[in-house]
Structures are given as C-alpha cells and as structure tokens.
C-alpha cells in the first residue's frame, strides 16, 4: 500500500500535515504525538522580525467552529532559524515554513533568510484575515497574488506554496493568478472572516472584533473550493478547512487535494493528526486502494 504523495518534487511519506498556526513549530505537540508519523509539519507564520500579535481575547468558540485573531504572534526569523529548525530536523518529516509579512520586502527577507536552511518548502501566507497591513491585502486581488508569487519565486530556493484566502468572490481566479506567477503548490482554505458578539457584555467576543472561522463548520465550503481550484489549475493542492478525522481528509483528497492539513482538530484532540494518518490507511485497506494517488481528484 502506497501512502506517499509528491508535492513539486518533495516526497511526503503520507499526505497528512499540520495547518499553520495550530501547531506552533511542533515542540508542544511532540510531548504527545510522534512527529515522525506526519507527512510534514507546517509551522506557524514566521516574519522578518518578532510580531506581538493582537490583544486578548484572541479566540471564541462558535457552533462547530472557532474564531481566532491571534495576529500572527511569532519570534521572527532569526529565533526561528536558531531554535525551531534544529528542533524539527530531529524528526523524519518534511519541514514547511509558513512565511508572513506586511510588505513584499518583508516576505522576501524571510524567503531569502531561509534559502540555505534545511527547509523543504515555503508556504506564503497571503491570506491571514487578522492582520491589517499584510497577509490578506495581497490575497484578495489577482494582480497582487500574481505579483507577489512572482517576486517570491525569484528568491526562493525551495518549492513555493501559496496559501489562498476563501474571503474572495472567485477563488479559482486567485488560484490561476498564483499559478501564472509561478507557484508550485496551492494550499487552501485559510479561515473565513467571522464575528461573534457577546450579548451579555454587549461587546465583541474577540478583541480584534473579527476573527478567522475554522473547524468543521467551514468544511463544506473548503471542500467545494478545493474542487473548484482543482478544476482551475494544474499544480497540486493542499486541502484544509475543518478536517477532524480521516473521513474528512479523504473527502478533500477525492475533491482534488494531493495533501491535507489538520488544524483546529488538534485543539479538540491533540492526537488528531496521527489518527488521520492511521484512518487513511484503514480506509485504503477497507476499499482495497493500493495507491493513495488513485484517490486524488477521483470524484469529478
């Protein structure tokens, strides 16, 4: 039985990775799960300098989901390179670094800094809904998506994943723009912008007023968007958005995703990522699937 998948020349032992921002750089979860079992660890966003993030409360629970507005708190690329890369290198898993920035130059600085580090792929976050100046500003205009992708590709030594926002009218258009700019892989979806009001305090549930909605509540939208993008581009897709178990992961693969990310599920169940790996194998056995690649985009 083959569970290996290929993303732009990088071979993953299985299609299961962590969703950026839900798993830090893996250290905290490594106390409970074996990172060697994962196809890849996708780190929390890394900027050129430390970012303090947003005021608290930064999260709120909603029905079947949660809002977060962490605001990309991170220690910046120097600490990341010195501390987190050596940590992840201890494991037999691929390292995918999520890169965030406020300006094109910020992104490029991080991309360049990582160019000679043992990082397998870069995921460019142009879709964080919680930071005003950066992220989303690039992700909602096809011309901007294409332009930043092209710039990043000039400097990147590793394959480039562009992470797309669902907060657009036509995600297919954004996907084509990233592909035109030279993206190697697309990942989608980031969170959907949402809001919750605390009726007892008559205030916003998260200090940022709006937050990114994640969790099973958004899964049907994410599956639809993966399907839509799979029909719009030729490059591989990493699918995510509300994956709680292996059944959810297989849905994304059948819709056209080559790999999947498990995010919010880790909060509900710290072992979720490992359980998804095992569950995919069980599904393959049950249906006599010899190669996981036969499932990718199998529902058309």
């Amino acid at each position: 039985m083959n569970t290996k998948v290929n993303l732009a020349g990088i071979e993953l032992k299985n299609p299961v990775m962590t969703a950026s921002g839900t798993f830090g750089s893996g250290e905290e979860y490594s106390e409970m799960i074996d990172l060697n079992h994962l196809g890849a660890v996708v780190t929390k966003g890394v900027a050129n300098i430390p970012w303090p993030g947003n005021p608290t409360p930064r999260i709120a629970e909603t029905h079947g989901g949660m809002l977060n507005a962490i605001g990309l708190q991170n220690p910046g690329m120097e600490v990341f390179v010195q501390r987190d890369i050596p940590f992840l290198k201890q494991y037999d898993t691929k390292i995918i670094v999520n890169v965030c920035g406020k300006t094109t130059e910020d992104y490029l600085e991080v991309v360049e800094r990582l160019s000679n580090e043992s990082v397998d792929m870069l995921e460019i976050n142009i879709s964080c809904p919680n930071v005003k100046e950066g992220g989303i500003a690039f992700g909602q205009d096809p011309k901007a998506v294409e332009a930043i992708t092209r710039e990043v590709k000039k400097y990147a030594k590793q394959p480039v994943i562009m992470k797309l926002s669902p907060n657009v009218t036509d995600i297919g258009e954004m996907a084509r723009a990233a592909e035109a700019g030279g993206a190697d892989v697309l990942s989608l979806i980031n969170t959907l912008t949402g809001m919750k009001i605390d009726i007892n305090r008559r205030s916003f549930a998260v200090a940022n007023k709006t937050g990114g909605l994640s969790g099973p509540a958004i899964k049907p939208i994410a599956v639809r968007m993966v399907y839509q993008v799979a029909n719009a581009v030729k490059i591989p897709i990493i699918g995510m958005g509300g994956i709680m178990d292996a059944d959810d992961a297989i849905e994304f693969i059948l819709a056209g995703a080559t790999a999947v990310s498990v995010g919010t599920a880790s909060f509900r169940n710290p072992y979720a990522t490992e359980e998804v790996v095992k569950g995919i194998e069980a599904y393959m056995k049950k249906y006599g699937v010899d190669d996981i690649n036969d499932l990718i985009g199998a529902v058309r």
Binding site: G21, T22, F23, Y29, T56, R58, P270
Partner: peptide
C-alpha cells in the same frame, strides 16, 4: 486566567 484553545502552549491564544 485567559481564554484558551490548545491548552499546551502551541496556539498562542491565552497570552498575558
């Protein structure tokens, strides 16, 4: 006390 998600230090929701 602060609102938490992961509870183990990974998600950075509950900072003070």
């Amino acid at each position: 006390e602060e609102r938490m998600a992961c509870g183990i230090g990974a998600c950075l929701a509950c900072v003070c």
